[in-house]
């Protein structure tokens, strides 16, 4: 039975960091462009300034751990311990979900974006807004 080598683990970790950074950057890019598209950068400049703040760190840490898991899974797949049929869907799902998760877990001025989004959806669906 093959075991992971130090080099493989190192590569997996490096890949995880890269994925984490890419997902964080993607989340920031997504939010910033969405704000620009809706002219929110002029109407809500405080949020625009907040997007780059340390409030992105907690979701970034989560992304790092998720990316590390994906990286290790990839390494295990490469060693034949995990079938490609398992790894590929997991990796695709992670690539789609990780940025979304990062956005939802982003806090702006201390308030979770997901809290705001879900309550807005509730208000819209109830016809209040």
């Amino acid at each position: 039975m093959k075991t992971l080598t130090g080099k493989q683990i190192g590569l997996a970790a490096a890949a995880a960091v890269l994925v984490c950074l890419l997902c964080s950057a993607a989340a920031q890019l997504l939010l910033r462009n969405l704000y620009r598209f809706l002219s929110f950068d002029q109407r809500f400049p405080a949020i625009f300034a907040q997007i780059r703040t340390a409030e992105m760190l907690p979701p970034a840490v989560l992304l790092f751990l998720s990316a590390l898991a994906v990286g290790l899974l990839g390494a295990l797949c490469r060693n034949g311990r995990v079938a490609p049929g398992v790894f590929v869907p997991v990796a695709v799902l992670a690539a789609l979900l990780l940025p979304a998760l990062a956005v939802l877990l982003t806090r702006v001025n201390g308030i979770l974006f997901s809290d705001v989004l879900f309550s807005l959806i509730r208000l819209l669906s109830s016809g209040v807004l």
Binding site: V108, N109, G110, I111, D115, S119
Partner: peptide, 25 residues
């Protein structure tokens, strides 16, 4: 108050609001 949370999110309300690890503001 969800409305207060919105205004804090938008950077309007200047209150000192913190969220606990369990998600309680």
């Amino acid at each position: 108050n969800t409305l207060f949370k919105y205004y804090k999110f938008l950077g309007i309300l200047q209150s000192d609001i913190r969220i606990s690890p369990l998600g309680v503001y």
